[in-house]
Design a protein around this nucleic acid. Sequence first.
DNA 1: AGGTACATGTAAGTAGTTACATGATTAC
DNA 2: GTAATCATGTAACTACTTACATGTACCT
Lengths: 163, 163
Amino acid sequence: MTGYALRAAITDTLGHFWHESFGQIYPTITALEAAGLLEREATTGVGPVHLTAAGEARLRELLAEPFTTPPPRDPLLLRLFFGRYVPPELTQERLSQALDAAVSRGEEFARVRAEIEEQPGSPDAIYWLMTLSAGEHAARARIAWAREALELLDRHADAESRP
Amino acid sequence: MTGYALRAAITDTLGHFWHESFGQIYPTITALEAAGLLEREATTGVGPVHLTAAGEARLRELLAEPFTTPPPRDPLLLRLFFGRYVPPELTQERLSQALDAAVSRGEEFARVRAEIEEQPGSPDAIYWLMTLSAGEHAARARIAWAREALELLDRHADAESRP
DNA sequence: AGGTACATGTAAGTAGTTACATGATTAC
DNA sequence: GTAATCATGTAACTACTTACATGTACCT
């Protein structure tokens, strides 16, 4: 595929857990081609590329290597944690937005699930369903949490206004 | 507090959703001091610092500003998605590790909850409980997902070995 | 005396984003 | 003909990690 198509594919199918920018993609394609891991389908220097045999071997190698998880950084939770320093209405709004976003993600996941289950028997299907399921569980948990937190905030505001 | 104590406090109380390294903390303390937002408690140039009035005002300002969420990058899900390229036992092991880690996190959260609920009435308590609850929901979701995925993988391996 | 926790900092390097720049092709 | 989509790339910048370097204080 082309770099452009690759980016679209990443956004569409890995979107809920991965991301790449053009600033990463194009220099990487150049480097991989120089290393013989990628090949152009034309000799023009641009256009679709695909993995060479060496490229696929390297991919398998990389996927099998141990990996580390980057340190967490959740900007929403950070702002909620210091909620005492901002108006309660702002915290409420932020929770509402998080709730809406999680609901949308849940709906999107349902559409993707329907799509995958239309073509069963693909050797990839089980792995795609696995990562999809991670998104579904996370979205449901986020929805439940946000509702709970909004209620907690409501009750707290009530208790403050009539002590 | 000192930079060292600050880092310990971040790790202890924000650990499940935030992180800072010394390489960030110390230069930042220097910059904030130069800007008059932090003050040393001694005149020696080292030792505990605390927010000035201007510093607290700036903190409130920053906390109230809109924020963006960084693009997602989940290294585990990426490797599961391309599960077809690695031995199934490796995928199984990775899921088991994720499950164990989520269980441990869940237990840790239970301890923290007990701690917070010991001193009720703190004006921060509601916000701390909110972020803690986010961790609890996420951990439970991760546990449920990992168990489900392990089962899916098991059934799949069975189906492959006796077609 | 030796180890562990407390404490502070820098320098090099990596990773990644954002903004800018350019142009071809397709759809209406 | 003009707007959107497809397509490729670079340069500057920001954020952040890691490794290194150094020293004190306390405990046993």
